[in-house]
């Protein structure tokens, strides 16, 4: 006597088929083409390319700066979301709209503008230079550019969740004698963390692959400020398609593993048992 509950969108076969075709055309086939291109290399060749000292230095730089940028945005982005959700003040709507600007701006424009500002002779960079700090053409500059382009992710993932938490819950906790730090730890953090992790992962993944904005501010010195996407461009400029795809595949695998770990972490937080 099984009774099927009819879903809102009819036809499981049709929707699944559509999903698979769509994913194949947009995601799977291009990625598979990359793996096939890289498979022209023998395992030893592949290993030699992806473990060359220059590639490893770029790997550390790309994933390191993307991680720091995501952390910075994790903190500042949450703060921004908090301010936008919990307070009303004149100009709030405008600031809210401004959050998305880094997405709309062509990344190369952002890169050139940031570089002009932060070079040792630039508007902001000159003060940093007086303090003996170099921003443009260092990993610090790369992190800055990545922080700029990935700003919206954490704000936009945390914002709606924060807006959904009723104030009453916090008030109830306070009435039951929770100190503010306990309200934060036991009420807000568990509710926000999954969304925060999503935003963090998106910002991180985007930062690893970012090219346009970084390339102007990085300085691109081999072993020091050379990002992985630039190494791919270098290989392509030597018409070394296989070598370029080898680095691409390596980036993809490392990113996939990291994103998978973040996803698992998220799952654990959502279902504590």
């Amino acid at each position: 006597m099984s009774r099927r509950i009819s879903p809102v969108i009819p036809g499981f076969g049709l929707t699944l088929g559509y999903t698979l075709v769509y994913l194949s055309l947009i995601v799977l086939i291009p990625l598979a083409a990359m793996f096939i291109h890289a498979s022209q290399l023998s395992a030893a060749q592949f290993w030699n390319i992806v473990t060359a000292p220059r590639v490893l230095a770029a790997l550390r730089l790309s994933f390191g700066t993307a991680f720091y940028a995501a952390i910075i945005n994790g903190v500042i982005g949450t703060l921004l979301a908090w301010v936008l959700v919990r307070y009303t003040f004149p100009g709030r709507k405008i600031i809210d709209a401004m959050i998305d600007l880094p997405f709309a701006l062509p990344t190369a424009v952002a890169g050139i503008a940031l570089t002009a500002l932060y070079t040792p002779t630039g508007l902001v960079g000159q003060f940093a230079a007086d303090l003996g700090i170099k921003i443009a053409y260092t990993p610090f500059g790369i992190t800055l550019a990545l922080t700029f382009v990935t700003l919206p992710f954490v704000v936009r993932t945390v914002q709606p969740v924060l807006a959904d938490i009723p104030r009453e819950v916090e008030e109830a906790a306070a009435c039951l004698g929770a100190r503010p730090i306990q309200v934060f730890r036991y009420i807000l953090v568990p509710a926000l963390l999954p969304a925060w992790l999503t935003g963090f992962a998106l910002a991180f993944a985007r930062g690893v692959g970012e090219y346009g904005s970084v390339i102007f501010i990085a300085g691109n010195m081999p072993m020091k400020t050379e990002i992985l996407p630039l190494l791919i461009m270098v290989k392509l400029d030597q018409y070394d398609y296989a070598g370029a795809t080898a680095i691409g595949v390596m980036m993809l695998v490392v990113s996939f593993i990291l994103l998978l770990l973040i996803n698992l972490l998220q799952r654990r937080i959502e279902t504590p048992n």
Binding site: Y137, I215, F216, G219, N220, M221, P222, L230, M233
Partner: peptide
């Protein structure tokens, strides 16, 4: 050379 841009324009 403190900066290696990717192209002459850069």
């Amino acid at each position: 050379v403190p900066v290696l841009d990717t192209g002459a324009r850069g």
